[in-house]
Design a protein around this nucleic acid. Structure first.
Lengths: 127, 127
DNA sequence: TTAGCGACTTACTATAGGTGAGTGGCTTTC
DNA sequence: GAAAGCCACTCACCTATAGTAAGTCGCTAA
């Protein structure tokens, strides 16, 4: 595809389709409603079901349970049953999950920047 | 919240709730189904409706139209009507859109790494 | 004049998410 | 030892969003 303008590049201009598919796949996993909030709770120290429910503001039991299963299936969170009485169930981020969150750090910096820009010049902050 | 284990950090452990909310907000915009694919098409040079439809594999006209409107409302894409005959409608990434994509670059690197790890050691690649 | 393209819009069905209540095993309090 | 409560779910119901297919309108090229 031809470029009609010369703009600052984003790094995505010349990557192959395979990489694009990988990228959209991963972003749609973590971008699914509540998933990012849950991973955030995970790396911030939540382990038990109730802790996640308290940290992920507004989520219901049903969706929390569903997302935890999905994230476990993706290998981002691991579920451990501690055989105490009563049984203790722990959900913790896997190394894969933590490394994914590290890869998303630049988005936090971007978000702050963008947020600040939008508030400093309300009508121009967004180009 | 207390940390029970000492693991490699992700950068999210000690950030405030405001930043967390910003982060989840942004990731749920770009993580919405098809959005990432559309932004990808945008920074890779698509401008017209049909070009997006060709680049974003599997998307329908209806959803493409809806997402383009949403991304325009978010200030990530801008819609321009070129008054030629027939009229030419262009959708291009804004500077805000391009900077967001730049912030997502590390996710591509992570994806490649993760993908390779999973394929090299099929049963151990995911912790 | 008819066939086709580009950019949508509409109608209908399927899947995902929101809400609220219920369950079963255990513990703590009266 | 009965009642109340916590934890980790599960079910039923309803709404909202996504998927699929067809239609529209202005234009052009054959």
């Amino acid at each position: 595809m031809a470029f009609e303008t010369r703009l600052p590049e984003t790094g995505f201009e010349h990557i192959d389709d395979e990489k694009c598919r990988l990228f959209t796949g991963y972003i749609e996993i973590i971008g699914k409603k509540w998933s990012a909030g849950i991973m955030l709770a995970a790396v911030r120290g939540a382990t038990r079901f109730v802790e996640y429910r308290a940290l992920v503001h507004g989520i219901s039991d049903r969706l929390l349970n569903q997302r935890l299963k999905e994230l476990e299936a993706e290998g981002l969170i691991e579920r451990t049953v501690v055989p105490s009485t009563p049984v203790l169930i722990q959900y913790r981020p896997t190394e894969r999950g933590r490394s994914l969150m590290r890869a998303l750090q630049p988005l936090v910096a971007w978000g702050l920047d963008d947020h600040e820009r939008a508030h400093r010049r309300p009508d121009q902050g967004r180009e």
